[in-house]
Structure formats: structure tokens, C-alpha cells
Computed example of a mutant assay.
Amino acid sequence: MKTIDMYEVGPRDGFQNIKEYIPAETKMAIIDGLVQAGIRHIEVTSFVSPKAIPQLKDAREIVTACLRQYPEVDFMALIPNLRGAETAVAVGMTRVAYVVSLSASHNKANINRTHEQSYQALKEIRETYPQLDVIVDLATTFGCPFEGKFPASRVVEFLKDYVDLGIREVCLCDTIGIANPGQVRDILRAVQQAYPQLELQVHIHDTRNMGAACSLAAIEAGVTKIQSTLGGLGGCPFAPGASGNLATEDMVYMLNEMGYDTGVDFPWVLALAKKEVQLIPTGVYSGHHIRIDAASRCFR
């Protein structure tokens, strides 16, 4: 039975899009529920300026509580710059995510940097904090709202500098949800052949209801790390047309039913997704998915 690691990114990628501040106690209640359900990899926040994303102003508090209560869980945070890395190290984090877009246009729209600026910023982080385990999130891997789709060779070419910098893990992100299973297989095959040493994750948005199909294609191509958000929460305001993420409970159900070992209790995580709807009143309940009006940076 093949083991699949579910990477829950809702507490960062989902919550940051909600205008109304979610109390830290509510966030922790959901994170507690995720841990109780069996999730062992959680991206809990981003160390970003509260002026940019007011929702994540409690990042230090959340991370401190998570590390204290659940030392066995792999907690991560997104860092946009050196200051974010400094804060992550100060509060005791050892794993962080750093985002850059394959699309130059989306990189500028999302994080207001050129590709060269993004690379130099990460180089500075690596030199200053070599002990940090940095995962590169490659946004718009499967298509950009401004530049369209890219060939697999472009992904391989773009990643070379980051691999040479010492990056050992990359998450390939379908930021606007336009990937298809064949494209996922083709890009993964090219990246795996070029960089067999890389650990790979996928992060698929569910804009066209193909999040599960594309994630399954990635698994069949050898990927064992799948990102998702509880209730399908999230979206990218800097990527026109993007809707929510792949729902954790949907993916867990499918994989458990197929005989994969996710280590996640489906009834528990489904109940938690329904509870999330009650805890976050700004959500629009549809089935058991939450669709949110995006109002802040998505970073992915």
C-alpha cells in the first residue's frame, strides 16, 4: 500500500483570503482538528507584513502555539523575504516555503519582483540561514493568466538555478487551475529526468474540477506529497479566473478508497470541514466546499 503525505495549507493559503479577521483561537481549533485527523504536514501561516495581509498578523502566536503543542508535526510557514526568514528562525521553525512564479508577469503581480530579484532574495536567505530547509513553490507551473501555458522544457530550464543553489524540494503549483492530467505527467516526467534528486510536491487548484484528477496523475507519476486545503478554501486574486484549492477531504476520500495510505481519518476530516464553515462565517457554503471572495495576496 503506497503512502501519500497530505500537506494541508489551508491555515495559510485559505485563511489569508478572508477579509474578516479570524481569531487565533479559531485558527488553532482548526489546526488542532487537522492534527487529530492525522494530518502531519501543515503550512500554518506566512511571515509577511501585517499591512500586506492583516489576517496573518498573529503569525508568531500561531507558530509558537503549534510548535509547543505538537512537536511531532511538520509545521511550515511561507516566507516572502529575508525578514520573514529571520522571524521564522527566531520562533523555532526549521522548514519554510519560498514562492516564485514561472511567469514573469505573475511574479511581478503577486510579489512585485522580477525573476532575478526573486532569485537573489532566496540566495540571500540561503546564505544567511543555511540551516533552514527551504521548499520552493513554483507558481504558474501549469499556466499563467497573463502568459498562457509553458512547455515542460521551460520548467526544467527555470529550475536549474534553484537546484544549483542547493534547493532539494520543489512544489509545482497550478495557480489558476488549468492543468490537465496529461500535462501534469509530461511536466513531472521532464523535471524528474532532469533533476532526479529533487523531492516534488504538487499544489493543484480546482477551478475546473480537475484538482483530484491532476493530483492523482502526479501520484501515478511518482509524487507522494499532495497539497490541499480543508474545504477547498482559497484562491488567488492576482490570478484572474482562479477559484479554490483542491479540498483535503475530497482527496483523502478518493485515496483512502483506492487503497492508498494517507494516515488521515476521512470521517474526522469531513466533519472538520463542515465545522470550518460554522467557524468562518464569511465563507459561502456549497455542498461541503467553501468559496471565498479573495481579497488579499495568495502568494501561490
Rank of each mutant, 00 (worst) to 15 (best):
Y260Q: 01
I53A: 00
M251I: 14
Q36V: 09
L230S: 03
A247N: 06
V9E: 01
R12Y: 07
V269A: 00
Y98S: 04
C298G: 13
A247F: 00
N110Y: 11
D32T: 10
M1C: 09
L102Y: 07
G244N: 05
M1Y: 07
N110M: 07
S103I: 09
L272P: 03
T175W: 07
H115D: 11
A37E: 01
I292G: 00
M258G: 08
D261S: 12
I125K: 06
T45Y: 00
C214M: 02
A104N: 11
N180S: 12
A29Q: 13
L270I: 04
G10M: 06
Q278A: 15
P240Y: 14
D161L: 12
D174A: 13
G177D: 02
F75K: 04
L34H: 08
G84C: 09
V63Q: 02
N180R: 08
I18A: 01
S105H: 09
M1D: 03
V44L: 01
Q227F: 03
D250A: 14
T248L: 00
T262A: 01
D250P: 07
N17S: 11
V191L: 12
H203P: 14
A217Q: 05
R189C: 13
P181H: 08
M210E: 12
V136L: 15
M1W: 03
I42N: 06
S105T: 15
F150S: 14
R40M: 06
L272D: 03
N209S: 14
G14P: 12
F150H: 14
L102G: 05
V202M: 05
G84V: 03
